[in-house]
Write a protein that binds this DNA or RNA. Sequence first.
DNA 1: AAGCTACATCGTACAATGTACGAGTCAATG
DNA 2: CATTGACTCGTACATTGTACGATGTAGCTT
Lengths: 229, 229
Amino acid sequence: MAGKRTDARRKQHAQASVDDAAGQEARAEPTLARERIVVTAVELLDARGVAGLTMRELAERLGSGVMSLYWHVSNKEEVLDLALDLVLEPPHCVEFGNWREEVVHQLEDWRASMLRHPWSVSLLPRRALGPNLLSRLELLSRALSKAGVADADVNAAIWSLWNHPVGATITRVSFTLSDDDMAAGQRRLARGSDRYKAIEQSRLLLDNDWDGAFRKGIDFLLDGFARAK
Amino acid sequence: MAGKRTDARRKQHAQASVDDAAGQEARAEPTLARERIVVTAVELLDARGVAGLTMRELAERLGSGVMSLYWHVSNKEEVLDLALDLVLEPPHCVEFGNWREEVVHQLEDWRASMLRHPWSVSLLPRRALGPNLLSRLELLSRALSKAGVADADVNAAIWSLWNHPVGATITRVSFTLSDDDMAAGQRRLARGSDRYKAIEQSRLLLDNDWDGAFRKGIDFLLDGFARAK
DNA sequence: AAGCTACATCGTACAATGTACGAGTCAATG
DNA sequence: CATTGACTCGTACATTGTACGATGTAGCTT
């Protein structure tokens, strides 16, 4: 029956997971090492991408043994989760008088955070509910509450705004990611110009004013809300 | 000539990649085995998810040796690329009289395809330019050309529509993915109800009419286009 | 002091995986 | 027959995440 289980030690930390410091009191002490691990992980990810994050490399950068990491972190996935959440920390709450500017600011900040750490985009599909993302959702929600959207539409409105940076950043990153893809895309466009007539004509793939398109997208949505009111 | 363009490379040219074999006449002989591999890969992905796709498992399902795969495919990544593209095949072009319905139909079909194969979402960030996605972009582009959007805005409009299903599906899948996350999210909401007051109040995370929200999002955008005209 | 407990580090070992290499099979063609 | 080129596959290896358990350390209780 293997009575002596040593899991007592792991439990304490493992359960904390992505959750922020739990108790109501200022319990504090988020295990200094844990934060160091995550910060270093982000550096590594920035430098070498998702594939470059190895527990061994991480340990080496921290000057520790590999297995020491597992005291503070239950597995590699958790490191990724924590790194993702760290990078998506929301901005300090700046109040604009104008709710519209507030929404735009928030979404642009989010997008900028992701583009600063492109690996974060590919992690997003796995875990999209870290505490920092929840905070961003909250901020967005509050800003929009001043917009006077119809009650029945408000949730749909929030999600639409939410999804815009997600989609836009993914699209942006995967286009930038490899110029090979871009070249291949152009090649495909070149031949069979009947098949891809429209996007060839509008030079959609060549127009790389991503920032502008992103901003316009927000405006479309906000205008749409106004009309649906 | 070009009759016997039996893929005599694979070893050397890893560049063929996702490109379709669309020469002009070379029809219906895209290395039967290659297609079988991809189809089987999709089955495996459907059954076991991204982590479950192993070259060994794949080979076993095909009743072949592991290394035989590498004749037809240059590496695992290519298998993933091909599987992704296969699954995102666009619908047969159905013409509606109404361009608006056409857009809605296309976006909903795309979203449905992705939800049918949830693993596709997590692959999207890596490679978003397969031929089938290009086709979808083309179809969308054509449908929208009838909408009378201002020339200066048309590309931004296309991208906004494009990003909507991407973001919405990622959000949707990552929420569904693990109920643990959902539970954790709720726990986080429960305590510190001041921090997440707004989204708690609107029951944003509990309202799971994803289909409706998605549809409304499209409408917001389309209405926004109309206003920007 | 001695012993106990919780915290923390780390070396070794192992299993799973992608794939390089090269030998092998088979059919068509010279 | 010999050659070639399409195709298959077994072996071997390097890289990875991590289970296990020994070790060290600090503080407390008796």
